[in-house]
Every structure is written in C-alpha cells, then in structure tokens.
Design a protein around this nucleic acid. Sequence first.
DNA 1: CTGAAAGCGCTTACAG
DNA 2: CTGAAAGCGCTTACAG
Lengths: 331, 331
Amino acid sequence: MSTPSIDEVAAAAGVHRSTVSRAFSRPEAVKRETLEHVRQVAAAMGYRMSPLAQALRTKVSTLVPLVVPDITNPYFAELAKAMTAAAGERGYQLVLCVTENDADATARYLDAMQAMYAPFAVIAPYARVFPAEFESRGFGKRLVVIDRVESGDQASTVTVDSAAGIALALDHLFELGHTSIAYVSGIAGTHTAADRRQAYRTLAEKHGMTPIELDSNGIGVGAGERAAEELVSLRERPTAVIAGNDLVAFGLISALGSRGMSVPGDVSVVGFDGLAFGARSNPPLTSVQQPIAEMGRIAIRLAEQVANGGSVEHVVLQPQLLVRSSTRPVR
Amino acid sequence: MSTPSIDEVAAAAGVHRSTVSRAFSRPEAVKRETLEHVRQVAAAMGYRMSPLAQALRTKVSTLVPLVVPDITNPYFAELAKAMTAAAGERGYQLVLCVTENDADATARYLDAMQAMYAPFAVIAPYARVFPAEFESRGFGKRLVVIDRVESGDQASTVTVDSAAGIALALDHLFELGHTSIAYVSGIAGTHTAADRRQAYRTLAEKHGMTPIELDSNGIGVGAGERAAEELVSLRERPTAVIAGNDLVAFGLISALGSRGMSVPGDVSVVGFDGLAFGARSNPPLTSVQQPIAEMGRIAIRLAEQVANGGSVEHVVLQPQLLVRSSTRPVR
DNA sequence: CTGAAAGCGCTTACAG
DNA sequence: CTGAAAGCGCTTACAG
C-alpha cells in the first residue's frame, strides 16, 4: 500500500521516467497534454515523490535544522512554533535540535544535518555565536542566526531593535511616574541580551537616572530569585524593574511573591519578549513584544535567499509595547 | 570539504565498497585486521555514512516524527525535550510536527514522514486518537501514543496513572483540612483528560464529597478564566481546586488574581503535570508530577520494540506529588 | 518535447 | 571473509 515509484507511474502513463520527473519539477518543459495526463495518472495512483531519493540525487533536502538551547523556554518554544509554520509553508520540515547548553552540540547537529543535505540552518543561540566556527560544518553562509553576530558578512541575522524595546519599556514606566527603575538581565549570553542591558544603561543615564542592575553578575538559572533577594535588601528600593526577558520576569515576580512583595502593588515589572503565556501569568505581564511569527518567516526568507546565491542580510525588526497588568502608576 | 563517499574510502583502503559498508553495519562479518584498517582509513578521511543513501536503500531512516498539538504548551515542550534526548541517545533525529489543532495535520505529517521512511512515529494528541485512522498511513502498529487509546492492540501507549494522580492531589488537600474541593478540567479532549476528571468524580464521592466541576462545558482556551469567574460567583466557595493540568492551573491563578483572590491565601490550587516552570510561577505550583523524561525514553523503547517485530505494549507510570506553595491548610 | 543512460551513496543477496 | 552486481527512487545533461 506504499506509494508507487516513479517507474510505476511512468509505466502506467506510458511515458518515460524522466517525463514523470519533469512533470513535477519542471512542468514548463513538458507538453501540456502529456503534463496533464501524467499528473492525472500519478494522482490516481496516489503517487508522491520520495523526498529522500530526490535529496540524494540533487544534494538538497527539505530538512531544516532549528537549533535552540532549550525548547522548554517559552521564547524558544514560540520561535519553534513560528519557524515550523514558516518552514511548512515553504515545503520544509523542521528538525528540532536542542543543544541543552552543550557547547559542541551545535556543531554536531550541523554536521548531521549537513550529511542530510539540509539546504540551510537556523540557529537561536544561547551565547554569542561566531559563524566562522561553523564554516567548516559545510553550511558556509547558509546560516541564519536569531541574534546579532560580530562579523556581519558570514551569516544572515534577524533580531529586534533592543534599544527601541528598552526605550518603550522605560517610557511606559516614566509615564506611570516611576523614576527609580532597575534592570535584571538574566543569564543569556547572546549579543541581544548584552544589547538590551547596554541600552538600559545608556537610556537610564540619558534620563538622568542612575542605572541599578540587579543580579549583575548572575550565573545560571535563578536570576529572578537572586534579583528579588537583592531588591528586597536595597535601602532605596526602585519602584519598577525591567527584565531582560519574560522568563526572568516570571521568576522575579515569583521570587518577589515568596518574599511578600506583590507586583504591581509593591513594584512594577516589565518583561521583554511578549510571550503569549504572559497573558495568563499572575499578574498578566506587561512586556516588550517581539514579532516572533514574523521573525520566523523572515528567517526562512533570508535563508532561502543565500541558498539561492543571494547575499547575507541583517533584518532588525521593531518591537511593540504590550501593556498588561504588571505595571501601575507609582504612588 | 564535504565528507568522502564510500567508494573513496574503499579506494583509499584498498578494499571493495561492500567491505567498507560491512565494517560499519556488520563488523562481525569482516576480518579483524581489515575492519581496523578500514575504520582507521575512514576516520582519517572524516568519513560519515550518508543517512539519506542508507535510508533510501534500506527503507528505514533515523527520522522520527513527534507530533504535538502545540509546542508552546509547556507540557508538550517538556515532552519534546525528553523525546529529543531519548531519540538522540538511540541515534534518531526528532522531526517536530506541530498540528495546531488541525484535524488533518496528523495524517499529513504521517504521510510525509512515511515517505521519508521514518521507522515509527510518536503522537501526543489533543483529542482522542483512533489508531485505526492512521493504519493506512503506513505506520501500522509502529506508532506510540502518549495517551490511552480505545482499542489497545493497535498502538503502544505510555501514560501516567490518572486515578493515582488525582488521589495524590486529593489526599494532600484532605491532609490540609480541605473538604470542599473543586475541579477544572481544561480543554484537552484526550482520554487522559477524561480519566482525570472521572477519577476526581469517583474519588470525591467515595470520600463523601459532592463533586464541583468548574467550567464543566468549557470550550477552547480560557478555561482558567471561566473557572475563576464561576468560582467567584459560587455561594459556597470551595477552599481548594484541582486543575486537570498545569497550564489550566496557571490560568486559573492568574484569573483569580485579577479578581482579587489570592492563591493560596483564598483558595489552594493543585495542578497536574509537575512542569519545571511551576517552580517559578507565582506562587510556585503544587502539582502532580508526571515523569516526563521517563515517558520519553519508554516511548522510544516501545516504538523500537514493535518496529523490531515485538508486540504492542501499554505502560502506565506512577505520578508523584510535588508540593510547592500554592496549597495551604484551610483556616 | 521526450527518451535512454549515468549516477547520487549506500546495502545485500550471491558467488567464490 | 571479500568482491562484483543489482537496485533503492530519483534527476539531468545529452541526443534525437
């Protein structure tokens, strides 16, 4: 009951195998009548081309690796969802590659996927990535990174404007009357994380505020926990805090709650990511929203572009402020 | 710089292609010396077999589909993480198939993966699954479902003991002095969801309690929201509620918070899943924990078992209670 | 516009 | 224990 092979279809249609092949891959190269006839016969037989055989022959498959540090992190989960959709629309199947912070895992995955003739790869890193390290993995420039990279000519990237995002958060808080606003970065070692933090510093000073960084040397998980600890012990407590990403914000709010402080009652908190889950957290999280679905689509487009010989490109998207319930006017 | 082919290795080692092949796939069939020599030469050349060519020839690939309704749901994310690890250990690569509640998507994915000679498939459904529907998809019994199924001989399954889990939650609450305990099922249409709900009813009555089901006809997302609404309007409010899964529990707590009710101050809440994220929610969630990592490993084992001609099996695991901070003694 | 042939990188009976 | 041959299901110059 398995799908017939191209030769069986050819026989049934009374044509040569190569004609069947053309009927699907280069329809303009076959006579109209023949085309229709072949397609009809093929459809009737339930024919589907073997993607494996095709990939072996052309050295290009439809398997695209998405490498993420941790699918359990809702940011990466949303990204995976967006990428799956974007990839599916273009006929690719996403292969999930979870690195679990294993430094060599990315290279191993890239090797494995290269062996499967993946047309390109998309990487959402947990640390700064140096595309040069992956050149030898065979993908060359056929790599898109969901972060900034140092040497821009080696891989395409798609990111959100960090400074604009932080400005959005800050302005929102200023409007609510906050003047003492702290920042928790969380553990991410990406350029993006560094950019957000730097933007906070720069903009805070520009507004005449002394930057207060919570858990500034944080290592590993539990950033929210440590930041809460630190916040509570401060003689002059900030009235609001911006978190470098939503997950840190959730952890912070949880840890604050355990210490008897309520959000937004005692402190306002704004996250960064704008995850859907934030709508059902306690309290619903005000956050700088990244257009994740769009990022997924763009990542695929950029990847296809260089796979087709086009050039590396860097897309920077604008974030939006998502006001929910974790912020309120300062008393 | 791409990997050499088997013929290049054979030439370099001075043997025939078939010997190289055997050196890797059936080492016991080749003379010791030859074996070592071939492997050495292959290693020196950085040879790796083409999984595609291998799959095309043997009609068995290492690509295994994991079909989930929504990777953004942390339960499925944790499952995906566990499955990725378990699959990786056994040399498979997981292909993420997200159905987004599209009723035909599962069949489409199965077709596509069948065409890639996937050795088996694992399905985490969002509704009751009837394996018979998928028989024609070519996987036959080479299917493992993360849920109960109706006709047990058609696919292997791995689940957690629903009744035991609900009993754990109930007993915990009884020990804290609660006597009025409600239940919110959430939207999942799986057998598991139905089992948990039924277990609640049965056990509640057994303990002389009148079951109180919140949002009992709930449709779509927002179960937590509707349940909170209902709870607040009740003349005699239960002092605790058990949620059919963690996500519903989070939503419930959020919605309760928006209505000025605090957990566990005003109501205790226990979830079901025991997600890692629950440790950082506000408040940290007491929950019945499913051994998700183990489920992943078992799913792969069961799948391999039937792929190797073994028999369908149904594994039921025991859950554990994870006490965090969303429950407290009734006043 | 269509067919015949070679080949992608493997595996596996079949001989020897 | 090893080699030679056929073949998995396709694509793509090359002729005609």
